[in-house]
Nucleic acid binder design. Structure first.
Length: 639
DNA sequence: GAGTTTGAAACT
DNA sequence: CAGTTTCAAACTC
């Protein structure tokens, strides 16, 4: 079996589009609001004396593009639909003048140019100071003022608590769980208290004023960041709430210029007790945190990335994408093809023989993942060492189908999971497979069926025969159910009128919600593919496991991630009640339903809000949400 | 683990 | 776009 091994030296440049700063996050929020509010925010930014270079304004978007260098203002104005679309999407075009204004006021230094010329040669640690001083860039941009050697974690006791030290300073609130729970604290010695204070101010301001535009958990993270440890840290949050291919993946174009291979991979076991992190060292070796040298493992926190979720089928928008190992309990464990499940989020490995793992037949490739050594594939080319092959194949496929790597599961609302009859949490019925299935024999009851495999119901887009999908038959589309409910309600009203009694007090919309938590309050329908508050170190890493295990991030993932980010800015208007309203989202049944309500008023069922706030990871919360849900529909027959 | 079934992907 | 072939996962034994 020919299976070229990655040499561990394979390197990739971190895609500019994925480098984020908290400010880009802020701007991302800004892009969702109208121009008047945008102006207000810009003014506030100035009031807070924040650095106003484009680097602050989301350098990934504006200036640090290895390919193009600085964008000229004209380019910015024109770039309304490129990878930076999240900032310059049509809906946010009103922001451009403000951004331009800020941009034009900057005076990027030669240091920046050097960086653009060759990021690999740019010794960020060495130049950070110069960079900051000359370009008036907050040091957040180049967090390598602390080299990884200065940041260590130390396990303090058996409770799985860890402390993180920066140099001689211990940050007591920074525990391992931060590293493993999907968020990470980026330590950074800005040395400039005013910047930190400004940062906190703007976060506070942001939190107070745009709480409707960002996801609650993100705000919480921001606020925590402000409250817990002011000063020398920033919150690097790895909560990429992605609408990815079956929740898959980040998928950014990468360049071949990479120097460092360092990566932390979270694997958060579902019970949160066996959480572990995998650190890939500079040599690309996978280090298991359960074993030395993790106890004193240096945390290369500046160039970490979350791994894509691959084909985490069934995970929906709004759910936190947790980066998980494909290896169940032990990264050194024997490969178990059955470890990939929706629940566990684990990945299977492929077994390709003919496709060289360069076709969509290959699940790894399709998910935008590189194959790993433990794949049983033959003649594999889906390796970092064959990056060109991968890219070429990918381009070919995208030529044939531009959406080939797009998410296959389309969340039509920001749903929360619902409790199925079997007691398992499942995706709400509004999630649908993008293409739909064409099953003929499996009745959509086997994993042959892509819908069933993704734990979503079949829809009108499916061409299946004899559909019996337990997650929703084709005939049970949300539209049909809506009609059914309307008919039911009409009948009830008629009966009530006839009897002179009181019709039920619930609105049809409410009933819909009661039945199917797939209907989502619009305040939560802000596109949830967001990278909240992430700063990426300019170098992406390739996880090259020491023991042949571990996931690798392929260019495809990164590409998709980039594309997905661009999609964040769904047209959005501010409603009279201050909530955002996604425009042109006719595909969303929930939208249709809700937009039909008078005065665009929306009824937010408590269970929905609660479940959204709690997030999908909180079983307790979901259960309580379920309780409310059941109470809300108590007067109606179950569907 | 081998063989079969299945449906998506790829091809024509 | 439709029919056919190829492919690899899912499934069965």
């Amino acid at each position: 079996m020919e299976s070229p091994k990655s040499d561990g030296n394979a390197i990739e440049a971190f895609p500019a589009s994925a480098r984020k700063s908290p400010f880009s996050k802020l701007l991302n929020n800004l892009s969702r609001i109208d121009s008047a509010n945008a102006a207000l925010y810009i003014e506030r930014l100035s009031e807070y004396s924040l650095p106003t270079t484009p680097s602050v304004f989301g350098s990934p978007h504006l200036d640090l593009q290895p390919e193009t260098g600085f964008l000229e203002s004209e380019e910015i104005a024109a770039s309304t639909s490129n990878a930076h679309g999240q900032l310059y999407s049509p809906s946010s075009s009103a922001l451009i003048p403000y951004i331009q204004k800020q941009f034009q006021s900057s005076n990027p230094s030669e240091c920046v140019d050097d960086f653009l010329a060759d990021p690999l040669e740019f010794d960020s640690a060495q130049h950070a100071e110069t960079f900051v001083q000359s370009a008036n860039v907050v040091p957040l941009l180049l967090p390598s003022r602390f080299t990884p050697s200065k940041v260590t974690t130390k396990k303090v006791d058996y409770t799985n608590d860890w402390v993180v030290e920066v140099g001689a300073q211990t940050l007591p609130h920074l525990s391992k769980k931060h590293l493993l729970s999907g968020s990470l604290i980026l330590l950074e010695d800005s040395g400039d208290q005013s910047i930190d204070e400004s940062f906190d101010k703007i976060l506070k301001f942001s939190s107070e004023n745009i709480c409707n535009y960002v996801e609650p958990d993100e705000l919480l993270e921001h606020q925590e960041a402000s409250q817990d440890q002011r000063g020398i840290r920033r919150h690097l949050q790895f909560e990429a709430t992605l609408d990815c291919k079956d929740n898959a993946a980040f998928n950014c174009h990468t360049s071949s210029r990479v120097r460092e291979v360092r990566e932390v991979v979270d694997h958060v076991e579902s019970d949160h007790q066996s959480s572990e992190a995998v650190v890939v060292d500079n040599g690309g070796h996978l280090l298991d945190n359960n074993e030395p040298p993790w106890d004193t493992q240096q945390v290369p926190c500046f160039d970490q990335q979350t791994l894509p979720c691959g084909q985490m089928q069934g995970q929906q928008i709004g759910q936190r994408v947790e980066v998980r190992s494909q290896y169940g309990e032990s990264s050194k464990g024997k490969r178990n093809r059955e470890t990939y499940t929706h629940e566990s989020g684990d990945f299977k490995r492929c077994n390709c023989q003919m496709s060289r793992c360069l076709k969509l037949y290959c699940e790894c490739f399709a998910a935008g993942l590189y194959c790993v050594d433990s794949c049983a594939c033959q003649n594999c080319r889906n390796r970092t060492a064959y990056e060109d092959w991968v890219e070429e194949s990918r381009e070919q496929i995208e030529l044939r189908n531009p959406l080939a790597f797009a998410p296959t599961i389309v969340q039509q609302a920001n749903d929360s999971p619902i409790l199925a009859d079997d007691g398992n949490w499942t995706n709400p019925s509004s999630a649908r497979h993008k293409r739909g299935c064409k099953c003929k024999r499996s009745k959509c009851l086997k994993k042959y069926c892509e819908c069933y495999r993704a734990k979503v119901g079949c829809s009108g887009g499916c061409r299946c025969e004899g559909c019996d999908n337990s997650f929703g038959k084709k005939s049970e589309s949300i539209f049909q159910r809506e009609e059914e409910w309307k008919n039911l309600l009409n009948m009830e009203e008629v009966m009530s009128d006839q009897k002179g009694g009181t019709a039920n007090q619930f609105s049809p919309t409410w009933e819909e919600l009661g039945n199917t938590s797939h209907l989502t309050p619009l305040s939560h329908q802000v596109p949830s593919l967001t990278l909240s508050n992430i700063w990426y170190f300019p170098y992406i890493s390739q996880a090259q496991p020491q023991d042949g295990s571990g996931l690798q991030l392929s260019p495809a993932q990164l590409h998709w991630y980039s594309s997905a980010l661009a999609s964040v800015n769904a047209p959005c208007e501010i409603m009279g009640d201050g909530s955002p309203h996604i425009l042109n989202d006719n595909s969303n049944p929930a939208n249709k339903l809700q937009s039909g309500s008078p005065n665009k008023e929306r009824v937010f069922p408590p269970q929905q809000i609660q479940s959204d706030r709690l997030g999908s990871s909180s079983t307790t919360g979901l259960q309580s949400g379920r309780k409310l849900c059941l109470q809300a529909v108590s007067s109606f027959p179950p569907l």
